[in-house]
Simulated assay, not measured.
Amino acid sequence: MLYLIFKLIDLYSWVLVIYALLSWIPSLRDSKVGEIISKISVPYLNLFKSLPLQFGGFDFTVVAGITALQLIKRFIYIIYNMLF
């Protein structure tokens, strides 16, 4: 079960990376796949929009989102090891 949760977190992290890469090629973001990735990514990334993560024309919201996922993954691992 824990393995599945970790794989889902890793998969979602990759979806966020793909979302960030799609921002460099607007025609891909407007494709069907791009729309699906946006629908999956944007609600989660909106959690970080209130933070000042835009510097010099760059938006580090995706980096913050991936970092948060990895911290959650680490936290789950630590709690699991403490309990079992």
Rank of each mutant, 00 (worst) to 15 (best):
L53V: 15
S31R: 15
Y80V: 05
I36H: 12
K39V: 01
K32Y: 08
A68M: 13
V33Q: 03
Q54P: 00
I36V: 14
K32R: 13
R29P: 00
S27G: 00
S27I: 10
L21D: 04
S41C: 11
F55Q: 02
P26S: 01
F48S: 06
A68S: 15
D59K: 09
D59S: 02
F55D: 00
L69G: 13
L4K: 11
V33L: 11
S38D: 05
P43S: 12
R74E: 07
I25E: 09
D59W: 05
L21W: 01
V17S: 06
V17C: 06
Y12A: 09
L83M: 11
G65P: 06
F60C: 02
R29A: 04
Y3E: 15
L11F: 02
Y12H: 11
S41W: 06
S50G: 03
V42H: 05
N46S: 15
V17T: 13
M1H: 07
I76K: 08
Y44A: 10
Y77Q: 11
G56C: 03
M82E: 05
G56Q: 09
S31P: 11
P26K: 10
F6A: 12
V15P: 07
M1A: 12
K39C: 00
L8D: 05
K49M: 06
S13E: 12
L83E: 09
I37R: 04
S23M: 09
S27R: 06
Q70S: 15
A20Q: 14
W24P: 08
L21H: 03
I72R: 07
P43Y: 08
L53H: 07
N81A: 08
L2Q: 15
D59Y: 07
F58Q: 04
L8R: 12
Q54T: 12
I18N: 00
I76C: 11
S31F: 01
P43D: 10
L22T: 00
D10E: 08
K39W: 02
N81Q: 04
F60V: 01
S41N: 12
L16P: 11
K49H: 09
L21P: 03
V62P: 01
S27Y: 06
L28F: 15
Q70A: 13
V15Q: 06
G56T: 00
Y77K: 15
M1P: 13
G57Y: 01
Q54E: 02
M1V: 12
L53K: 02
L45T: 09
I72K: 13
L53C: 02
Y80K: 03
I37T: 11
I37N: 04
A68N: 13
S27F: 08
F55C: 04
I40E: 03
S31G: 14
K32E: 10
M82D: 02
P52V: 07
L71Q: 04
F60I: 00
K49P: 00
S50A: 09
